[in-house]
Write a protein that binds this DNA or RNA. Structure first.
Ligand SMILES: [Zn+2]
Length: 834
DNA sequence: AGCACGCCGACT
DNA sequence: GTCGGCGTGCTC
């Protein structure tokens, strides 16, 4: 009997077998606690019979994209939180009982009966149900789906059909001598030998419509018939275990010294621990503190946050049964990291991460549910853990973007943590060296208590940070003129024959570092999708007059546009408006820097790590391991390299494309850049081996960069908050981004016109409401199409959350019926709008 | 999102 | 003829 299998499967098993599950729902606390509400509930249920038509009517949340719940008939009362098997349409699904149905039924509705109750005790506690309800409303996501995502993933993976190249097909592709072969190359790309069948259908159709490069188009059918490809039933892919997962869980016995006389705390640490402990003090009856308190722990890199966490957890453990949750960005969730806690708290730490198999994850969470584990360490989804008595939630690196889920239910683990803390009356500690503007503003406004640890306690000195100003434009890009405004590969090359993208001083430093037997990290941006126009005179990107974010420019086009508000202008116009200025089209990320490194440092062993690879559980650990072993001299990669990993032999970190990062078309560009520099500074060197950080920029006097050099968070935050306030961005407003996407561009554009009309109507019909909410777009996002689907975004923002919700909800309802194949995505508090 | 129904063009 | 692709409607 495997508990992680779908309920449908185990429902067919005899009852005794089910008993082995611990006869428990997932979120249950204990049998004792649950049965009392169950009895009270039964009483209430029967009383209802006197009141009205709700007898035996049970409200059930069903996992479906429909934004509503359903009413079923139940023979006996079903306490809220129980999972139930119900008929739904022509299938059977697992829903969650919510309570007696309150809503009036439409006349003539034929109710169906619940088929089975799947739990002996509720899977979802009252508190967890309350969290689910809040999430459902706040993130505008159906309750049934929210409840489903809260449970650990079941291993049912949909077997999708695949289209695979046959050996003949592979041959035809590499030869590319036939039109079929050429078409296969377009369809599959150069290396892949299989792709999803659905994607193949769509892509082949698109290629046929595009009247492509001379080569004929074929239908998938034709290709199958000629034996070049075969349709295959997709195998159910099982998440592969990360190698590190097998790291010995029970560590070797520790000497008392090792295990743990806690290190002497510095005053700032002591003070933080004391303040938070006050909030942890349990009330008389043994339940957690009477009131939840949120702390923002702002500690510079090396200020000893981990030790503070550990001591707080120790405090929690003093109370029988009390538990603690430590949320960590996915990327930092390494065995090295968890071992620190496992050593200090042997046997009672549970760890979950996304690379685990479902069984392993289920088992870890089971330990939390049973109370045998008292500490849970995990990424954002761990915030839904099945705690009995959660007394403390720690959110490490609270500013980290990985706490935000970007697809489906777009929740932010940090924000849910704050809510859960409130509902569970647990203390919440948000820790960071560079707090998010949201949390910092909450602290300034007194909603969170700010605790500061400005002092470094670890032996590692701050590295030397140098700005390398670029006197030349350093290969930034092409100078645009009215008559040749297009950024084009040829121009770029012609222009840069003697203008390399990396300053010789940096190349020299890299070479010296290698000769000294040390390693280096070079941080670049992800390879580019667009350009911005850099004014040499103003030393900044040409911004949108409405939104103050950089205007973007695409290759082979001279149209500059704002992807927030859809403001448009042309390069010619900008050039004409700024006589005497030099304007440069700069790509946000490029291959150039890497190529230059390889060319100028032929002896160095250089490897590139793209952030796309994070998704790939195989590559990332392998490369990092190689780097750790010293088989790589220079690791070139995106921001992820600055996070989480400690490489003791890295003494030099180079940040090459700071200007591009600063000018990303996103109101958080500055915040991200600041975080990157501070993080990098925290990673270079170690106690006996001082590190160095080099920053190449065309604008050496940039106050943001200067503040980062000084680790002056407050200075940076003050100016950043000023910017946010002036332009009505978060944290001074809330934002909801709605994306529509679909394969037919004209259809999407028609829809956009309707959306504009809707806005006009709102302004007329409800002027008061409309005045409170800023609506930008529909506009074209910087990445216009993803996997053949065109995209448009509408951004709602307001300082009045109620008004924002009302307007967004009205909008979503108005466009509830979408044209064929068009999908709508809602992102509440979007983390990135690209 | 599933799932079924019904319509239509194209391949045995 | 029928098989598969695709738009449409429904889910207590
Ligand atoms: Zn704009």
């Amino acid at each position: 009997m495997k508990p992680y299998e779908s309920p449908e499967k185990y429902m067919t098993l005899p009852r005794q077998a089910r008993g082995k599950l611990g006869s428990g729902g997932f979120f249950q606390h204990s049998t004792f606690i649950v049965w009392i509400p169950a009895l009270a509930y039964a009483l209430a249920f029967s009383l209802r019979t006197f009141q009205g038509p709700v007898v035996n009517h049970l409200e059930v949340a069903v996992p479906t994209p429909l934004a509503r719940t359903f009413t079923y008939l139940a023979d006996s009362p079903v306490p809220p939180g129980m999972r139930v098997l119900v008929p739904f349409g022509r299938r059977r699904v697992v829903g969650v009982a919510l309570g007696p149905a309150q809503a009036e039924l439409e006349a003539g509705t034929q109710l169906k009966k619940i088929e089975k109750i799947l739990d002996d005790t509720p899977s979802y506690s009252e508190t967890v149900l309350a969290i689910a309800r809040w999430i459902s409303t706040y993130y505008m996501h159906p309750l049934g789906e929210v409840l489903r995502t809260m449970l650990p993933a079941s291993s049912e993976k949909v077997a999708k059909d695949l289209l695979a190249l046959t050996p003949e097909g592979e041959q035809a592709r590499s030869a590319a001598s036939t039109s079929e072969g050429q078409f296969l190359k377009l369809l599959f790309g150069k290396k892949k030998t299989e792709m999803s069948y659905g994607a193949a259908l769509g892509k082949s159709k698109r290629l046929a419509g595009e009247a492509t490069i001379g080569s004929d188009a074929f239908t998938v059918r034709q290709l199958v018939k000629s034996g070049l490809v075969v349709k295959r039933r997709g195998s159910t892919m099982r998440a592969r275990e990360m190698q590190t997962e097998e790291v010995e869980r029970a560590p070797e016995p520790l000497s008392p010294a090792q295990r743990g006389v806690a290190p002497e705390l510095r005053p700032a640490q002591r003070q933080a621990v004391d303040r938070i402990c006050q909030a942890l003090r349990p009330t008389r009856d043994g339940s957690p503190a009477a009131e939840s308190k949120v702390f923002l722990l702002h500690g510079v890199t090396g200020s000893g946050k981990t030790e503070v966490y550990i001591q707080l957890i120790e405090e929690v453990l003093k109370e029988s049964g009390h538990q603690a949750l430590l949320l960590v960005p996915e990327i930092s969730l390494t065995p090295q990291m968890t071992q620190v806690f496992e050593r200090r708290f042997p046997g009672i730490v549970a760890v979950v991460h996304s690379a685990m198999t479902d069984i392993a994850r289920w088992q870890e969470l089971q330990r939390i549910r049973a109370g045998t584990a008292r500490i849970l360490i995990g990424p954002r989804s761990a915030v839904f853990g099945p705690f009995g008595k959660l007394a403390l939630i720690l959110v490490d690196e609270e500013h980290d973007g990985s706490y935000k889920q970007s697809t489906g239910l777009t929740y932010n683990g940090r924000d849910v943590a704050v809510l859960r803390g409130k509902l569970e009356k647990a203390a919440v500690v948000l820790g960071s060296a560079t707090p998010s503007m949201e949390s910092y503003q909450n602290a300034l406004a007194g909603r969170y208590e700010l605790l500061e640890m400005p002092e470094r306690v670890t032996g590692r000195p701050l590295p030397e940070i140098n700005i390398i100003p670029c006197e030349k434009k350093r290969g930034l890009g092409t100078v645009v003129k009215a008559h040749s405004a297009r950024p084009h590969a040829d121009d770029v090359q012609a222009d840069e024959r003697d203008d390399i993208p990396i300053d010789p001083k940096i190349l020299e430093a890299l070479e010296q570092n290698r000769l000294a037997g040390r390693q280096a990290i070079v941080l670049v941006n992800r390879r580019g999708y667009a350009y911005y126009l850099f004014s040499l005179q103003e030393r900044q990107a040409v911004p949108c007059p409405n939104c103050s974010i950089s205007l973007t420019l695409h290759a082979r086009s001279t149209v500059l546009r704002c992807h927030y508000c859809d403001y448009k202008t042309t390069v010619e116009r900008i050039v004409a408006e700024r006589p005497g200025d030099t304007l440069i089209a700069v790509g946000y990320g490029s291959q150039k820097a890497e190529d230059c490194l390889a060319a100028k440092l032929p002896k160095a062993r250089i490897t590139r790590l793209d952030s796309d690879i994070v998704v790939d559980r195989e590559v990332l650990p392998k490369v990092l391991e190689k780097f750790r072993r010293g088989d790589i001299d220079i690791l070139v990669g995106t921001q992820i390299l600055a996070k989480g990993h400690d490489f003791p032999n890295v003494t030099l970190i180079v940040i090459l494309e700071v200007d591009q990062l600063l000018n990303l078309p996103d109101f958080r560009a500055g915040e991200r850049t600041f975080q990157l520099i501070v993080q990098a500074a925290g990673r270079a060197g170690r106690a006996d081996l001082p590190g160095k950080v080099l920053i190449q920029t065309v604008r050496a006097e940039n106050p943001l960069v200067l503040a980062a050099l000084e680790q002056d968070y407050k200075g940076f935050a003050a100016s950043e908050l000023k910017f946010r306030r002036a332009h009505e961005y978060p944290p001074f407003t809330r934002m909801i981004a709605i994306e529509i996407n679909g394969p037919h561009k004209p259809r999407l554009e028609t829809l956009c016109t309707q959306m504009e009309r809707w806005q006009d109507e709102l302004a007329v019909k409800q002027p008061n409401l409309a005045a409170k909410v800023r609506i930008l777009g529909p506009s074209v996002p910087p990445i216009e199409t993803i996997r053949g689907r065109h995209r448009r975004t509408v951004i709602f923002s307001s300082g009045d959350l109620q008004a924002l919700r009302t307007v967004s909800q009205a909008f979503v309802t108005a466009f509830g019926k979408l044209p064929p194949k068009v999908r709508l995505r809602i992102d509440v508090d979007p983390q990135s709008l690209i």
